[in-house]
Design a protein around this nucleic acid. Structure first.
Lengths: 209, 209
DNA sequence: GTTTGATTAAAACGAACGTATGATTGAAGT
DNA sequence: ACTTCAATCATACGTTCGTTTTAATCAAAC
């Protein structure tokens, strides 16, 4: 088996540590130590710690975004007006498919995504790929056709709720805040639960003003 | 006007800076500078930076928790089986009532709550008041009676979704990720939207297995 | 008027941080 | 054999961090 080059070993180590300890809580030294690389390797391969963070974010988020785009493409190729459930599944599904479920790698990646989306530091959120913005607007338009009568503002609010649930869902699972009385849950079940939950939420009648 | 004592000025400054820059991104020096206090005052009044964070978290979260408790008490005093909408409003309402809406203080506090709930550092999440755990379990029991046929595990999943939406909702609003075409939204509207959205989500029929 | 106890002020501590520098390697190109 | 150049290495720099220590301040108590 070919030994992975230093660059990807640093990426792997950074992905793990950024998820576990956050951006500011992770030192470049900790990353290079875990990667078995030299301290200066980060500067050489990525330029700076911030650019390393951007590279990590890109590697995690890009496949999810392209899967979301592809899912919507597949729906729109079949019909010009997909159902709400189909749109929910196409949007939320990649967040389950592209992330290993069950093992703790999944919780790690989920925690990293939450960090990327919510960290106060500009440098952490800085990378938002060109697809990141367009994917939401494409789904916004599709949901708008599937849910006439909803104001654009309320629809946008619901889109944010959609993302919040799918992103936040899985980190709490691994913070062992689950009550002891509950049995552990398989990854596939939560996927279905999420789609049920979110389809009902998106399909709610418009709020009377 | 009585001059606020150093202790609360430090608390105010810390609350603002922790929200804006996160826990690790905020130095004790920045806090005391903003508070107009001396560097050593943090050590004197709170013991350490971590204990200051705990004090800030307590001051923000405690009124929300007690309001959630009181809301459920009020419902249960009236009937032993409140409706789902009432439970949603009692749970999510305080997150809107106890936080100033509209101005940027509200977005600040919301960002702080997200930090408290999601920061990877143990010290940040360390303070979870005694009410924090019990309030969720009380609502869990109440939702369980209102939604028979739902497995405890799926119900718990939906409870987490409930929290995710209410917590994450408002930070994105202030990260100016909103598309320019949308008009700004009043705080009162989002409150109603959230209750509509979440009531529908919680009321969804059980997922077929 | 002096003592006391609670604050605040100023300075310094060692440790850890991100980054930059210059030497060293080793395989490919000529 | 010599050059080239991407890659890695050890090391050091300047800064900032949380915390501690010691001295000064000041109202109230006696």
């Amino acid at each position: 088996m070919a030994p992975p080059d230093t660059r990807t070993q640093i990426l792997d180590a950074a992905e793990r540590l950024f998820a576990e300890r956050g951006y500011r809580g992770t030192s470049v030294r900790a990353i290079t130590d875990l990667a078995g690389a030299n301290l200066a390797a980060v500067g050489y391969h990525f330029g700076s710690k911030a650019e390393l963070m951007a590279a990590v974010a890109r590697r995690v988020i890009e496949p999810i975004n392209t899967a979301q785009h592809a899912g919507l493409d597949r729906l729109l190729a079949r019909t010009s007006d997909p159902a709400v459930t189909e749109l929910v599944e196409a949007f939320a599904g990649p967040l389950f498919d592209e992330i290993p479920t069950g093992d703790e790698d999944g919780a790690q990646t989920s925690q990293l995504i939450v960090t990327i989306l919510s960290d106060p530091a500009e440098e952490v959120r800085s990378w938002t790929g060109p697809t990141q913005n367009t994917v939401r607007e494409r789904y916004l338009a599709a949901f708008g056709r599937a849910l006439p009568g909803l104001s654009p503002e309320e629809l946008w609010f619901r889109m944010r709720g959609l993302l919040a649930v799918t992103a936040v869902d899985r980190i709490e699972t691994h913070q062992q805040r689950t009550p002891a009385c509950l049995s552990p849950v398989a990854g596939e079940a939560t996927r279905h639960w999420a789609i049920t939950f979110l389809t009902a939420a998106m399909s709610a009648p418009p709020t009377k003003t």
